[in-house]
Simulated scan of single mutants.
Amino acid sequence: MIPLLIDEVVAVAESVAVAVLPLGAVFLILQVTLLRLPRRQVSDILKGTAIAGVGLFLFLLGIGVGFLPYGRAVGEALGALDSMWLVVAIAGLLGFLVTWGEPAVRILADQVESASSGAIRGRMVLIAVCVGVAAWVGIGMLRITLGIPLLWLLVPGYLVVLVLVWLGDREFVAVAVDAGGVATGPLANSFLLALALGAATAVGADPVVQGFGFVALIAVAPIISVGLLGLLVRARTAERPPATPPSRRPLPE
């Protein structure tokens, strides 16, 4: 057990070093040749980079040691259940909760609210993304259980995306497309992919054929849900009667 943990620590440390050190080196080169920032600001940036590297190391180590085995164990337990609809319901709930805790999704929601000056509420976007992922995680588990080909879901899904892009407002289309990327962040991606692989193993399906491709379904889910949210907001806005100015009484002569 301890040797495996040491191997995991070394592997994660190497991957974090490969990711962070080149960025730090590029910053120092630009600092010398182009930026010429004050020494205190350079120190703050380097300290922040070091803290981010440590945080990334701990995060990836936790995923590798605990989160991936946990997701696979849950997937195997779900795949062993007899009730198909119970499997779909539990998988959808897990998809909602994992996406709710995904840092990238929360950052997107906060930035959308900030950039739109509150016109698009961040919590509304967050809930739309979580609901979309939950629905498609359930559909993905149904695909694994029934052996449905991946293209039977992806092709109609992206056809719906094209229709929503054509009909939707530019603001919500842009947010929806970015939401498809952030929903497959490291937290949701690692857990839900392990969940799919565990479920495929439990039902006796080929994990490569039925387990993988799950992330593609998760990526298309927020585009559809946020696009539908945009159409709903536009419809509700169109139903509201225009505000009429209050009547003014004539001033006495």
Rank of each mutant, 00 (worst) to 15 (best):
M141W: 06
V74S: 08
A183C: 05
V177Y: 04
R72W: 04
N189T: 02
D44M: 07
L167N: 11
F96E: 01
A50Q: 09
L217G: 04
D7T: 14
R240I: 14
P103K: 08
Q31C: 09
V112K: 00
V165Q: 06
V42Y: 02
S15I: 06
R121F: 13
G213W: 00
T201Y: 14
G48D: 06
M141G: 05
I224R: 00
R123A: 15
E113P: 00
A109P: 02
C130T: 02
P69A: 05
F96C: 06
V215W: 12
A174Q: 08
L146Q: 13
I63C: 00
T244D: 03
M84V: 10
R40Y: 11
L60P: 02
V42C: 03
L60E: 03
R234N: 10
S190P: 08
P69S: 03
V208F: 14
A238P: 04
F214S: 09
A91N: 06
T237D: 10
T33S: 11
A183S: 04
A19R: 02
F172E: 02
A11Y: 14
L151K: 10
L142M: 11
A188Q: 01
A50L: 09
V155K: 06
R249Q: 12
L153H: 06
D44H: 09
V173H: 07
R248N: 09
G118D: 13
P103D: 05
A235W: 12
